[in-house]
């Protein structure tokens, strides 16, 4: 086989193009089983206030998913302005011993969790200036995606549909525009509901897919994690293989047209 096909983000290579979140699982054991089944190497985590007085003796996420085995991607979920997002990621960098790779998301409102792009751009600029490697959740607007790349973000991550909605890829046209225009990796982040959604994202030419709820909220999260792993791989291979052109309004037989035992054939319309 030729050169290995790997996802390269901020100069590091990953054999898996599936990135997964660690939220919404029943417990840490299920989190770990699902993440192992997904084959993901990059996992997102949230940064939250400690539960003072209630955390004694409780295991932590870091015990179940050792940072030596996974690349942590701390996020800014729950932040609605640039300042909060920047503060959160400074804390994340301190917490994770100087770790620079982060997921920036600045949300517009709690109902849609749609990205607030003006604040996202402000935060991205600040974080890049402080040495962070910023993977950024964004709208599927090709102009603003390019702006984020120009600011120095290491990956842009447009939503396919609303976070946690499972609605799949609502606008493949815009996604394609982003992929064509942006040089850094483009990952679909948010909205994937099932395996075919992930495959479609990869077939469109995305460099990866980030998901959480599609796996965690499945009836069998571990099996769904396996399905997503296969879907991302299948979609990527289909993209690399180069799909046949679509042919509208006429068929082409796959079997020989001569030598049949039939006595007659209707004329083509």
């Amino acid at each position: 086989m030729a050169k290995r096909d790997e996802l390269v983000v901020a100069g590091r290579s990953y054999s898996s193009r599936l990135l997964v979140g660690t939220g919404k699982y029943m417990d840490f054991a299920e989190t770990r089983s699902a993440i192992e089944a997904s084959g993901a190497q990059i996992v997102t985590v949230a940064i939250r206030r400690t539960n003072i007085g209630q955390t004694q003796g409780e295991p932590s996420l870091l015990d179940f998913l050792p940072p030596s085995k996974f690349t942590y991607l701390p996020n800014t979920a729950g932040c609605y302005n640039a300042q909060d997002a920047v503060r959160t990621l400074r804390l994340a960098r301190e917490l994770l011993d100087g770790h620079k790779l982060v997921k920036l998301e600045v949300l517009g409102d709690p109902q849609s969790l749609y990205p607030n792009m003006p604040e996202t751009l402000v935060a991205a600029k600040q974080l890049v200036s402080e040495g962070f490697e910023v993977m950024v959740y964004c709208s599927d607007d090709p102009i603003q995606a390019k702006m984020l790349e120009d600011l120095g973000c290491v990956a842009v991550m447009p939503l396919a549909s609303l976070i946690g909605s499972g609605m799949g890829i609502l606008n493949p046209w815009n996604l394609q525009l982003v992929i064509e225009r942006v040089g850094v990796p483009v990952l679909v982040d948010a909205g994937v509901g099932t395996a075919s959604d992930a495959a479609i994202a990869m077939e469109l030419g995305c460099d990866g897919v980030l998901m959480n709820t599609a796996i965690a909220a499945a009836k069998n999260p571990v099996m769904m994690a396996q399905a997503m792993k296969k879907a991302v791989e299948a979609g990527r291979e289909a993209f690399l293989a180069g799909r046949m052109p679509k042919k509208h309004y006429s068929a082409t037989p796959s079997s020989p047209t001569t030598g049949t035992i039939t006595s007659s054939q209707p004329k083509a319309a």
Binding site: G21, T22, G23, K24, Y25, F28, T31, T44, V45, A46, I47, R48, R49, T50, I52, T55, S60, L61, L62, Y72, P74, N75, A77, L91, A92, L95, L96, I163, G164, L210, M211, N212, T213
Partner: peptide
């Protein structure tokens, strides 16, 4: 002061 930890999230 803010004292934070890493928790599960997407």
């Amino acid at each position: 002061l803010e004292v934070v930890v890493a928790v599960g999230g997407g």
